[in-house]
């Protein structure tokens, strides 16, 4: 379970360009939920996603992950935050964020290289993740030669390879056509049906429709 309490984030604090991006957010995401976070551009969606993914920090409130143990993310040091990102979170971004020049399987194995898993586990786990997204037959292909939809599948495989507690997807279909969007959302739904918690940040209402709950953010606050 993800528990957010009075979450605040301000950029450029104390300067003339100070901007209050998140203003006291409160929400919970239960295990196995598929939640969409929607809002207009500049509402604070990506800021929230970055905080949830432990890529960015926050100024006030609490962010807890409750699984086998309770982790308060704001109290973690840099080393523990890196471990948190590796073990508990899988992130999927709009532009896929794949390493050019690497093959499909090399990209999927990246989180494993920072994990505490044995090297002998890397390839089997990566292949299993690729199988989940239907990309196992293209494991050795250079990612530069893939279509947008295929790249996003690889990104999803990388996000799930370490069996994280939840997956964060920031506009995962933003760069894809309608048909491919449908395919990618099907992959997410399949993962969710298998019990994976998924949080999708999107401005696309059709994507939000496919999630079981929608949280609307406007001007840094939850409005719906």
């Amino acid at each position: 379970m993800i528990k957010i309490t009075e979450l605040n984030k301000t950029y450029n604090k104390g300067k003339s360009t100070e901007f209050h991006a998140l203003k006291g957010l409160d929400f919970t995401v239960n295990d196995g939920e598929m939640v969409a976070i929607i809002g207009k551009s500049g509402a604070g969606k990506s800021t929230l996603l970055h905080i949830l993914g432990a890529i960015d920090d926050y100024d006030g409130g609490e962010y807890k992950l409750v699984s086998d143990t309770e982790i308060e993310v704001g109290k973690l040091n840099q080393k523990k935050l890196a471990e948190f990102r590796n073990a508990h979170v899988g992130i999927v971004l709009q532009d896929f964020a794949l390493v050019e020049g690497y093959s499909v399987i090399e990209n999927v194995m990246i989180p494993l290289r920072f994990s505490k898993r044995k090297k002998s586990e890397y390839k089997p786990r990566a292949m299993e993740a690729l199988k989940h997204v239907g990309m196992d037959d293209l494991a050795k292909k250079d990612v530069n030669k893939l279509s947008g939809g295929q790249k996003q599948r690889v990104a999803i495989a990388r996000a799930i390879v370490n069996d994280p507690d939840f997956i964060l997807a920031d506009e995962p279909t933003g760069a894809l056509d309608t048909e491919t969007t449908g395919q990618i959302m099907s992959v997410f739904k399949e993962l969710n049906e298998k019990g994976k918690t998924i949080i999708v940040v999107t401005h696309d209402p059709q994507v939000a429709e496919q999630c079981e709950r929608v949280i609307e953010i406007s001007d840094g606050k939850i409005v719906g």
């Binding site: 080393k79 990102r85 590796n86 992130i91 964020a97 989180p111």
Partner: peptide, 14 residues
């Protein structure tokens, strides 16, 4: 930098 950012989100310290 982008490549290292990918490593970062996958669990590497910056």
């Amino acid at each position: 930098l982008t490549q290292y950012s990918v490593y970062y989100i996958c669990g590497m310290k910056w």
